[in-house]
Nucleic acid binder design. Structure first.
Lengths: 363, 363
DNA sequence: CACATAGACTTTAACGATATACTTTTAACG
DNA sequence: CGTTAAAAGTATATCGTTAAAGTCTATGTG
């Protein structure tokens, strides 16, 4: 029925109408460069032939930009949607990119299997104008691959690299606040629930070499913050068990606290590196009739939406993940537009005291 | 310092080495087509010159595929991250696309302002191999634009279009179950909390013309399901207020229920088109000392994670949003690979009875 | 030795679009 | 009437890659 089996392109439209391809292109991109009459004639034809605008790929090649930004995540992509902090972050980021008419490409880096090694080629294959790198290990090859492309980049949370625009908080100071809150309440026996410190999948108590040796800047800083507060209060850090989980999911906190209660002297105060871990911990204790906060106080980190509505409501360090996203988005967009980037101050955090902490009764 | 100001490309590498561009390309894509020695020599040079693999855009143009799939959403993109159902859906979808090594492009369709009109050009500009269309109005121009590109497509939830692969549930049947549950408990005075039925921003009681005239298939079907159950029980549908909110956020349910209680005869049972609306409704009633479920029973729709942990836990129609995502992903990937698509049966739903419903005491 | 075969490259020709510079026509002005 | 300028198009030259088909050696076979 229809003409040839060929694809409909700008050029084929142009030929059919006896005008130059450039004119058809202008009909879409520079309406003022051709007469209204011809423009309508062109659209009449494109409509009839089922041409729906210049091919985005051809355009990107010629224009040398794609109007897309890539998001790189240290875990399988789908995990991001299980992590409330990441979801808030992406929400903030997407509001800015959408405003700027940029697509947001979630870069797949499956690396084939379940394992934690992300395929660095993913960063090379992504057709984007810039990257937002969300919370990666200092040594992640995927990160190196992304940086090598010399595209505009913003790193969020970690790692901190000299000269690379960064958005994040003062993790050390925030952690310190959390610990000081518990110290002020008179607590003396602590336990820490941390996420993974290395991609080796190890779980359990992490000694201080492992704590300091971790390639995750955020974890390192938070642990340092806890430690500083305790040492200042005269408590020996070496006696504080740091239980390392493989990830940040709620169940991991659940199992971590079980392990801690089984093997260590029971703590009266727990510092978790994320709210999810804290909530999992509380869940386990609730099941075992250990009362929070009467018997044990718990402080989380993040202040995700579920923290406020938990039972008991979780005391936590608050950070604004959505704002982190908008900030990262603005910094990236500014680079893409060659504008001055917004300032790169650490974002504010504060402690939100709720029902999961109370004075130590066991002293 | 470095050679010329030119960009480093396959061709420039090839020239520098005195081989053909094709050979350099093969070094990346078909290692078996050149000698190991030359391949290493090439990588040595690319490393030195900072070439990080073939340009994705050039490759996409030549290969006629991008290895990206686009997600189209009826609202501003960033709203998706506030909607737990959408988040679960995207999680499921991304797990499949990542597995298939496809990027997930969140297509921006801001259309300039806050208004609900999405810019149809967004669908034309997206460099993708296929689209997942998530819950759109029957008449959305953005949808039409996407379909016109004749790319593989899967529609999720709505609209149902002849010949377009579809993933969704039996909304009418599910809604009917929800209503029947309340009828079985002896309830006779109902109110419905619905999301928007038209993009005109109207809020308040929607008459049955408006209910049937809505361009949102899902809403239409759910309302029909409620109606069918009531009429079967001999209750006149015309007396059931259907309160329409502009969206699905929790606060909207909060205000809707306030309006309903202020202006209508007080219901003993509330059917909400989403859990979020239901939870907002409960929040308002709790504040006003109206006890759920003693005074008023509430049934939600979706069974989002927060439903189970709400106070009281929400009785709701359960649908598996993550599975919807994986199903949509699989159907799209199958099309892209020219395989047979998995079956397109409606996904299962069921009623989860929790604490927000109880027998009617006011009769 | 003639002849097939495999291995290692190269040549050619698109893929679809658009920036830039150029030509032609028409209108306008002093 | 001659000059200028705007309006409406066109021609050319890439943007960076890769499929497909071709060339040229070496090696082995009957």
């Amino acid at each position: 029925m229809s003409s040839s089996g060929n694809r409909v392109t700008l050029t084929s439209i142009a030929r059919k109408l006896g005008v130059s391809a450039m004119t058809v292109s202008n009909a879409y991109n520079h309406p003022d460069r051709l007469s209204e009459a011809l423009r309508e004639r062109i659209f009449e034809t494109t409509g009839r032939l089922g041409f729906h605008g210049p091919d985005p790929v051809g355009r990107s090649l010629r224009r040398q930009r794609t109007d897309e930004v890539g998001v790189l995540y240290s875990n399988p992509l789908s995990y991001a949607f299980d992590d409330p902090a990441a979801v808030s972050f992406l929400g903030g980021l997407s509001s800015v990119t959408e405003e700027a008419d940029l697509g947001l490409l979630l870069v797949p880096a499956a690396g084939g299997g379940e394992s934690s090694e992300r395929d660095p080629r993913a960063a090379a294959q992504a057709a984007v104008d810039g990257f937002v790198i969300y919370s990666m290990s200092d040594e992640e090859p995927l990160l190196a691959a992304a940086l090598q492309r010399r595209l505009p980049v913003v790193v969020v949370d970690q790692p901190r690299k000299e000269g690379v625009p960064f958005v994040g908080v003062d993790d050390e100071g925030a952690a310190r606040m959390a610990a000081e809150h518990l110290l002020d309440l008179g607590h003396e026996r602590f336990a820490i629930v941390s996420f993974g410190l290395a991609p080796d999948g190890r779980e359990g108590i992490a000694d201080s070499d492992r704590q300091e040796g971790t390639a995750f800047h955020v974890s390192r800083m938070r642990l340092r913050g806890y430690r500083a507060a305790m040492e200042e209060a005269g408590l020996p850090w070496s006696e504080v068990p740091v239980y390392e989980c493989q990830g940040s999911a709620k169940e991991l906190g659940y199992w971590a606290i079980e392990a801690l209660f089984r093997s260590e002297q029971e703590p009266t105060a727990i510092l978790a590196l994320s709210d999810q871990l804290a909530l999992g911990a509380i869940e386990w204790m609730t099941e075992w009739r250990i009362s929070v906060p009467q018997d044990v106080s718990v402080v989380g980190f993040d202040d995700i939406p579920a923290a406020a509505s938990a039972d008991p409501p979780l005391t936590a360090i608050h950070q604004d993940h959505a704002e982190k996203g908008t900030m990262a988005g603005r910094m990236l967009v500014a680079q893409l537009h060659d504008e001055d980037a917004p300032s790169a101050e650490p974002l504010a955090t504060h402690l939100v005291v709720r029902g999961s902490t109370s004075p130590n009764r066991k002293r």
